[in-house]
Amino acid sequence: MMRHIVMFRRLAGVEPQPELEARLVAQMRGLEAEIDFIRQWNVAANELHRPICWDYILESTFDDGAAVERYLPHPAHQALVADLKQYFEWVAVDYSV
């Protein structure tokens, strides 16, 4: 199994837009229903607001690295990325479990 973790935060210089942010997070949460080879999917908001913290985390699991590589260019994922990049920046980590 391969774990794919992504952390998101609002881009520097972008004013908070709560309605847009809520829509984007809902899109993130709904992506699992669009890609049938995702094994586990969880999007959570940060609860302790410290300078070191990011705003959201996506924790997902795939069968293997090849499945992650299939996921990244998937049209549903790419559509989400196009929407997210207007508001968020992100970092990712992929590792075997």
Rank of each mutant, 00 (worst) to 15 (best):
M1Q: 12
M1P: 13
M2V: 13
M2C: 06
R3A: 05
H4F: 08
H4N: 01
H4E: 01
I5S: 03
V6G: 05
F8W: 04
R9V: 00
R9W: 03
R9G: 03
R10K: 14
L11I: 07
A12S: 11
A12Y: 08
V14F: 03
E15S: 12
E15N: 03
P16K: 04
P16L: 08
P16A: 14
P16G: 07
Q17N: 14
P18A: 08
E19P: 04
L20Q: 12
L20K: 12
E21Q: 14
A22K: 12
A22R: 13
R23L: 11
L24Y: 10
L24R: 10
V25E: 00
A26V: 00
A26I: 00
A26K: 04
A26W: 01
Q27W: 06
Q27I: 04
Q27S: 06
Q27A: 13
M28A: 03
M28P: 00
R29I: 00
R29Q: 15
R29F: 02
G30I: 10
G30D: 14
G30M: 11
G30R: 07
L31K: 00
L31I: 03
L31Q: 03
L31A: 02
E32N: 03
A33G: 11
E34V: 09
E34T: 07
I35W: 08
D36W: 05
D36K: 12
D36H: 11
F37R: 10
F37V: 06
I38R: 01
I38E: 01
R39P: 00
R39T: 12
R39G: 04
R39S: 10
Q40W: 06
Q40L: 07
W41L: 06
W41D: 05
N42M: 13
V43C: 10
A44H: 06
A44P: 06
A45F: 06
E47Y: 10
E47L: 15
E47K: 09
L48I: 14
L48N: 15
L48R: 15
L48C: 11
R50T: 09
P51A: 07
I52Q: 15
I52E: 15
C53P: 01
W54Y: 13
W54M: 10
D55C: 02
D55M: 08
Y56F: 15
Y56C: 03
I57G: 05
I57S: 05
I57C: 12
L58Y: 13
L58G: 11
S60Q: 06
S60M: 09
T61M: 08
F62N: 00
D63N: 12
D63T: 10
D64K: 09
D64C: 07
G65W: 01
A66K: 13
V68F: 04
V68Y: 07
V68K: 08
E69W: 03
L72A: 09
L72K: 12
L72E: 02
P73D: 02
P73N: 08
H74T: 08
P75Y: 13
P75R: 13
P75W: 11
P75C: 05
H77F: 11
A79H: 08
A79P: 04
L80Q: 00
V81Y: 09
V81I: 15
A82N: 09
A82H: 07
L84A: 13
K85V: 14
Q86L: 13
Y87T: 11
Y87H: 14
Y87P: 03
F88I: 02
F88Y: 15
E89W: 03
W90T: 02
W90K: 13
W90Y: 15
W90P: 00
A92W: 01
A92E: 14
V93N: 11
V93G: 15
D94G: 05
Y95K: 08
V97S: 12
V97G: 10
V97C: 14
